[in-house]
């Protein structure tokens, strides 16, 4: 009984707000302003979507976001798989220090690093480029991905790749044929996490992006509610299109997500 009560309350609190904006994205401005929850049928429309997809620059920002987040995911996958394998399988000098160091980056205030970061990107001539945004966003995801994957790789018995090495398999072959199949849930989670964090990032994009060339959906949506007369129907449509990609990916990895997220913390 209590469990059911908690379930119902949670659904209302955590899911209703999302459903509400999706619902309102199909309503006209007039319908929203009647302040009724269930308006008459003529209050529903597809106009909000038609407008933001054809009149505004939203499709362009959406593609920017897709491009940046895909690049972050790709680099993050390669770098963190290699790094986590190195940390999991080899006795490197200062290994513990590196692991604590990676974890401790989580306490660095991003706002403190922002101006120097801006200058680094500037001096690399990467201002307002997809690469520039992606490279800087990597610092948001790499520590967590490496930590998570290392936890995952640690659960794969060392004998497996040691015997493969004796058989003459090189590093690449060991990674592809032995580690990756076993750790594929972890890999999926790393990809998901990288994509979503990059998609959601506001702080770094707001500094590195200077124009429409690299502006993302997150940047767009945060500027929408600033004006006085807000077209709420369109805002809701933009918000819906912003959250839908992350929700679709979430649906795909949902089952593995928990397993992957907790791999690092559960093994001890």
């Amino acid at each position: 009984m209590i469990a059911y009560a908690i379930m119902v309350i949670s659904v209302c609190f955590f899911l209703l707000p999302m459903l509400w904006i999706v619902y309102c994205s199909f309503r006209t401005q007039e319908s929203i302003f009647t302040a009724k929850i269930f308006p008459p049928l003529e209050g529903f429309t597809l106009d909000n979507y038609r407008r933001i997809l054809s009149v505004t620059d939203f499709p362009r920002y959406f593609l920017n976001s897709l491009r940046i987040s895909s690049l972050v995911t790709l680099i993050s996958l390669v770098v963190s798989v290699l790094g986590a394998y190195g940390l999991s399988r080899y006795d490197i000098k200062g290994k513990d220090a590196i692991i604590v160091g990676i974890f401790s980056t989580q306490m660095f205030p991003q706002v403190l690093m922002l101006i120097p970061l801006f200058l680094v990107v500037f001096s690399l001539n990467l201002m307002d480029t997809t690469t520039g945004v992606a490279l800087t966003q990597l610092i948001l995801v790499l520590p967590f991905c490496m930590w998570m994957l290392k936890g995952y790789f640690d659960t794969v018995p060392k004998d497996l790749d040691q015997s493969a090495e004796v058989d003459g398999a090189n590093l690449f072959q060991r990674l592809v044929h032995i580690i990756l199949p076993v750790a594929s849930p972890g890999i999926a989670v790393v990809a998901f996490y990288s994509f979503v964090v990059s998609w959601s990032d506001y702080l770094i994009v707001s500094v590195v992006s200077q124009s429409q060339r690299t502006a993302t959906v997150t940047l767009t949506i945060s500027r929408l509610t600033a004006s006085l007369l807000v077209r709420w129907g369109q805002v809701c449509a933009v918000a819906t299109l912003t959250i839908v990609p992350t929700l679709i990916l979430f649906a795909f990895v949902q089952r593995r997500l928990v397993e992957g997220l907790t791999a690092g913390a559960l093994k001890e």
Binding site: L15, V196, Y202, T218, I221, T225, L247, F250
Partner: peptide, 13 residues
């Protein structure tokens, strides 16, 4: 689901 959507969208909602 609420954890995976962008904070900017959450704030807008």
């Amino acid at each position: 689901a609420s954890w995976v959507i962008p904070v900017a969208a959450t704030v807008t909602i």
